[in-house]
Design a protein around this nucleic acid. Structure first.
Lengths: 100, 100
DNA sequence: TTGGCATATTCCTGTCAAGGCATATCATGC
DNA sequence: GCATGATATGCCTTGACAGGAATATGCCAA
């Protein structure tokens, strides 16, 4: 599954957001998300397949961490579009929300 | 449909890429993509619903153009992750700085 | 108003992925 | 080895969505 598709699911974006705090065991994610354990496990599998997270085995636990590579690729994908909202800012006078 | 989901379909990203060249009638997109006309029309509808394109009526034609607003939001969504690939360049695995 | 071109919509069907539940695997401590 | 906790996997059902073909709508010209 490509990273665009992997990111299409809200709960998977929530997982990534949680992993910004650093490496975490799967159980911590289950607790934080208040989602069924098998569901989280399956979403983690998708994120792994898309290269968005890495897993490290620590005894009985799996420690998940963010792998930013596909996000950097997404950033790259956005590049040719940036001129468009830069233009919009100039032309329409800064009513694009920059505080968010 | 949210923009993440809208962007998950490759042909829709192709449409956006074509629209970087500027406003174009639906028919030009059909030709460029070599896809069935109803298919392109339906994908344009999804892109419209997600706010990624605007449409302007010109006689019998519909002229589509890029609306960068959701892409700017995506750029914003990426922001808290940028530190991660910046860090990766500096020092591997050093995610201790919680800048967010 | 009729015909023709451009585009949208509808219906149908197949596929793929998510959710829920049960169960399997794996490592650890006793 | 056995029980236990942590995590993954399998099966099943359901719903969402894409593709294709046919048709509808809308606009214009003659």
């Amino acid at each position: 599954m490509d990273s665009f598709t992997a990111l299409a699911e809200p709960i998977r974006r929530d997982i990534l957001a949680l992993l910004r705090q650093g490496e975490q065991p799967a159980g911590a994610l289950v607790d934080a998300l208040a989602a069924p354990q098998p569901s989280v496990s399956k979403h983690l599998k998708v994120l792994r397949a898309a290269g968005l997270v890495r897993v490290r085995i620590d005894g009985p636990r799996r420690l998940y961490s963010l792998d930013p590579t596909p996000l950097a690729a997404l950033d790259d994908w956005l590049r040719p579009y940036r001129a468009f909202w830069a233009d919009k800012l100039d032309a329409l006078g800064d009513h694009l929300n920059r505080s968010d």
